[in-house]
Nucleic acid binder design. Structure first.
Lengths: 200, 200
DNA sequence: ACATAAACATACTAACTGGTATTTTTTTTA
DNA sequence: TAAAAAAAATACCAGTTAGTATGTTTATGT
């Protein structure tokens, strides 16, 4: 039982270090050696817990990357309150709350989508799953807004959800190229204008 | 003079093959060996024309990637006609005209932004330059629309331009995860709704 | 036609890659 | 407490990486 715990702790250590390195340097250029040097464990330890780099990648996506999006962008949508206001706050606040590091390094999910999104079907599915969760939560919120009469009834929830997600992920990438927040401020201004028209 | 031409032809050959391989497999995982195997020339030939992979990467960005965006998204904005209509057509038609291959592989620029956009300042600058050109062209078109009275005068051109670019690049990435055009159709629907509100 | 230089080829290096085989250490169980 | 099993370490492998050193071939200018 103590062994089981130890194993779990080691796996978590590997996953956490792997996520950080993938985020900082990309997936392909982060080697198992580099990850294990960070954990101060050996390569043998890695291949005892994981059968391949691919398996690790999938765990990092489904545990770390997904959790980040769920906590930052999905759960806040499910809180009670005015749907329109929640929509506005979540997108704007999240963007403003990012650290400089996170702004410079973009969205971990979006980085992976664009780096390995068309390499392996398994990665594709894992990443798509996150997008679908996000989309579903947005659609639910928008539908809620229609019922409570804070959002216009004639707009397409799915289209709006998809457009919101696209623009958010897009700006997260583009911001990486800049060293100021100007593009983010412009994005927020464009977003606000977009949101306003769906306000009832 | 014949030599100069030969040199230019070889460089173009290398750049073209490099672009295709970067687009298909990503920048980091495409080696000089793979590129030169495609050209049926040798590694010696490569290092005679380029001093490093980085130098090649920068040429691919400034020649091939930039040209693609200029031809597909920027030049069409400068044609005469109703500004609002041009905006709508360029974004929607471009997206619909992509081949299956291009949909599956995303936007070459966006792929690079997310793969190497925070690695090297040189890459950052080259990619940012393309975004800035695109943004400028969009701002000009929107301003033109305001003058000719096809676009509302109270909207921010810069914010709108940035929001349009963000969402376009975002959906190009997300589409890589899917095997149907559903997300693209939703995006177009969301975009149309966004555009409608700026119509005078 | 001959020296010069450009274009390209061949052979190599040292570091790094994902992964394996084997051994040692630690924990569990009977 | 001894055998079994899990956790981790060590040493290795074959293939790949960007880049270099040193050639050979081809064009150019005199």
């Amino acid at each position: 039982m103590q062994q089981e715990l130890k194993s779990e702790i080691t796996k978590q250590l590997i996953i956490n270090k792997a996520f950080s390195l993938f985020y900082e340097h990309g997936f392909k250029t982060t080697s198992i050696d580099k990850i294990m040097k960070e954990t101060t464990l050996s390569k043998g330890a890695f291949y005892h817990h994981y059968k391949s780099k691919k398996e690790l990648g999938l765990e990092v996506i489904s545990l770390k990357v997904e959790k980040r999006v769920v906590n930052g962008m999905i759960l806040p949508l499910k809180e009670s309150g005015n749907a329109y206001q929640i929509l506005q706050e979540v997108f704007v606040n999240r963007l403003k709350d990012f650290s400089i590091y996170d702004k410079q390094h973009g969205c971990p999910m979006n980085n992976l989508i664009n780096e390995i999104g068309n390499n392996e079907v398994a990665y594709q599915k894992a990443l798509k799953n996150i997008i679908e969760q996000w989309k579903t939560a947005l659609v639910q919120l928008i539908e809620r807004g229609k019922v409570e009469n804070s959002i216009k009834k004639d707009i397409s929830s799915k289209a709006t959800a998809m457009y919101l997600i696209s623009s958010f992920e897009g700006i997260r990438g583009i911001r990486k190229l800049y060293d100021t927040d100007v593009v983010i401020e412009e994005y927020i201004s464009g977003l606000s204008f977009y949101l306003q028209q769906m306000k009832v």
